[in-house]
Simulated scan of single mutants.
Amino acid sequence: MNMAQKPMTKTQLVAALAEEMGADKKTAGAALDAVTSVVTKEVAAGGAVTLPGIGKVYCRERPERMVRNPATGEQIKKEADKQVKVTVAKALKDSVNG
């Protein structure tokens, strides 16, 4: 897939999964929704999920900090918040770089 192409839609992903699994689209869609649900719940609870061969999705807490408003240059305090991060698996990076 080259960079100019649009990302796969959920419909296309479900169809491709169904083909890969030798299952119907309903089953593949349910599997995708289940993975999404598990990852969302786990990461929202502060945990992490490793998707083998893809990467790790995790939540990182950021402390309260000072940030600058680029429009005004004014320094403002930003409350502590959480950030979702993804670390890409080495296997995926290696396969992309051939």
Rank of each mutant, 00 (worst) to 15 (best):
K41S: 14
A4H: 07
K26M: 05
T27S: 06
A23V: 06
T9M: 04
D33P: 01
Q5W: 02
L32K: 04
A15S: 13
E19Q: 08
E19S: 02
L13Q: 01
Q5I: 02
L32F: 10
V38C: 09
M8C: 08
A34M: 15
V39W: 11
A15Q: 11
S37H: 12
T27K: 07
P7E: 09
V35G: 12
M3Q: 15
K41G: 06
N2D: 14
A23T: 10
Q5Y: 05
A30H: 04
L17D: 04
K10E: 05
M3A: 14
K6H: 10
L17K: 02
K6I: 00
K25Y: 01
V39N: 10
K6P: 07
K26R: 15
D33Y: 03
V39K: 07
Q12Y: 00
G22I: 09
E20M: 09
A15Y: 08
V39Q: 08
V39M: 14
E42F: 05
L17N: 04
A23C: 07
K41L: 07
M8T: 03
E20T: 09
V39C: 09
A18L: 03
T9Q: 06
K26N: 13
E20L: 14
A23P: 06
T11A: 12
A28C: 03
A31N: 06
L13R: 03
V38R: 05
A34P: 03
Q5D: 12
M21V: 00
A28I: 01
P7R: 14
V14P: 01
K25V: 00
A23Y: 01
L17M: 15
D24S: 07
D33V: 00
A23R: 11
A30N: 09
K41D: 12
T11H: 01
T36D: 08
D24R: 06
K41F: 06
E42A: 11
G29K: 04
A31F: 12
V39A: 10
L17Q: 02
A30P: 05
V38I: 15
Q12L: 03
A15K: 09
V14D: 01
Q5P: 01
M21Q: 05
V38G: 04
Q5S: 15
N2V: 12
V38T: 11
D24K: 15
T27I: 12
E42M: 13
K10S: 05
M3Y: 08
T11L: 02
L17V: 15
A15R: 11
A16P: 02
E19N: 02
L32R: 09
D24E: 11
A4S: 13
M8G: 02
A23G: 06
A31D: 02
A23F: 01
L13A: 03
V39S: 11
P7V: 08
V39F: 05
A28L: 06
T27P: 00
L32S: 07
A30D: 13
K6E: 08
V38N: 04
K25D: 00
T9P: 00
M8D: 03
E42P: 06
A31Y: 05
Q5L: 13
V39G: 12
A30T: 12
T40S: 13
M8F: 12
P7H: 14
N2S: 13
L32D: 03
K6S: 11
K10N: 07
V39Y: 12
A18Q: 02
A34G: 13
T11S: 06
A23N: 04
M8S: 05
V39H: 10
K10L: 07
E42I: 12
K25G: 01
K25I: 01
Q12M: 07
Q12S: 03
E42V: 14
A18Y: 00
D24F: 06
A28T: 03
T27C: 02
